Amino acid sequence: MMRIEKIRLVIADGQPALLTGLQAWFEARGRYCIAASAKSPGQLLAQIDDARGDVIIIGDALGDSHEVLRALRERHPHTPVVVLTSEFDPRTLLAMQHAGARGIASTRDELSELGRTCDRVLSGAEGVVSRRIAGFLQATDERVVRQAFDANAVYGRVRTRARPFSAIT
């Protein structure tokens, strides 16, 4: 079934230029309307109850995104939140997901990628990340696997080798 009404967005970011740019881009698409916009966590939390947004987009210029995510989860647990971030540290990105972000996009992504992330989150998907964020997470996973155990690593002056071992019972 095709959605008739526009998707209501709540957008919050501490950078006014980014906030204005996001509003203009989404409104130009025709599928979206801006239900509320905020420049600070306090302003966001004050407006969120009346806004009745379908999706909340928060930028990392708001400050501690983990605290904002927790507050949003407490007040509006069913409204999906997408984080727009400049972070690329996998631990930080995973912490955002654990704090309640259903989607994460990079500030370096094209805005169409942020739009796709929002669409996927609206469809009910969780743990949605943009391609760039997925690349950060995948590159780190591969590096962690390689660093986890190196069969030919030299530890001090002791060289280790991995050999198959089978126990006879």
Results as ranks from 00 to 15, higher is better:
G156Y: 07
S123A: 13
A125I: 13
D109H: 00
R91Q: 14
M2W: 02
R73D: 09
R146C: 05
F26H: 05
D49M: 01
P77S: 13
D64K: 14
A162T: 07
R157W: 05
S106Y: 02
E142P: 02
Q147C: 12
A71N: 13
R161E: 15
G30V: 12
G115N: 07
E74T: 15
L111I: 15
F88N: 11
N152M: 08
S40R: 09
P90A: 14
R163E: 06
T117I: 14
A105C: 11
G135Q: 13
Y155R: 15
T85N: 01
V154T: 10
R132Q: 03
G30S: 13
I168G: 01
Q138E: 07
E113A: 12
F88G: 10
T79A: 12
D119R: 05
I56L: 10
S112E: 12
D50I: 09
L69R: 08
R163H: 07
L69F: 08
L62A: 03
L122Y: 00
A24V: 10
L94N: 13
A153Y: 04
H98G: 11
A51D: 06
G124L: 12
V128G: 00
R73E: 07
T117F: 00
S106D: 06
Q23Y: 01
R157H: 14
S37G: 10
A24I: 09
E126T: 15
D49A: 06
E87Q: 14
E5C: 10
P80K: 02
C33H: 01
S166W: 01
L93T: 04
G14C: 10
W25E: 01
P77T: 13
D50V: 12
I133C: 07
A139F: 10
L22H: 00
V158W: 03
T117N: 02
A101K: 03
A51M: 05
H76S: 15
A134H: 14
E87K: 04
A38M: 04
L45D: 00
L9K: 12
Y32G: 09
G59D: 02
Y155F: 08
A101N: 05
A51N: 06
A28P: 04
G156R: 13
A36Q: 09
G103E: 04
G127S: 05
A148M: 06
S37W: 10
S86W: 01
E113N: 02
E5Q: 07
V128M: 01
M2N: 14
A153W: 03
T85Y: 03
A101C: 05
A148V: 03
I133F: 09
T92A: 06
T107Y: 00
S65E: 09
N152F: 02
D89L: 15
R75H: 02
Q23L: 06
V82G: 06
A71E: 11
R52M: 02
A61G: 07
M1E: 09
L137F: 04
A12R: 01
P77K: 15
F26C: 05
L137H: 04
V68C: 05
C118K: 04
M2G: 08
E67Y: 04
A134I: 05
P16R: 14
A148L: 13
R163S: 11
A24Y: 05
L137D: 04
T160M: 07
Q15M: 14
G59E: 03
L19Y: 08
F136S: 11
A61H: 11
K39Y: 03
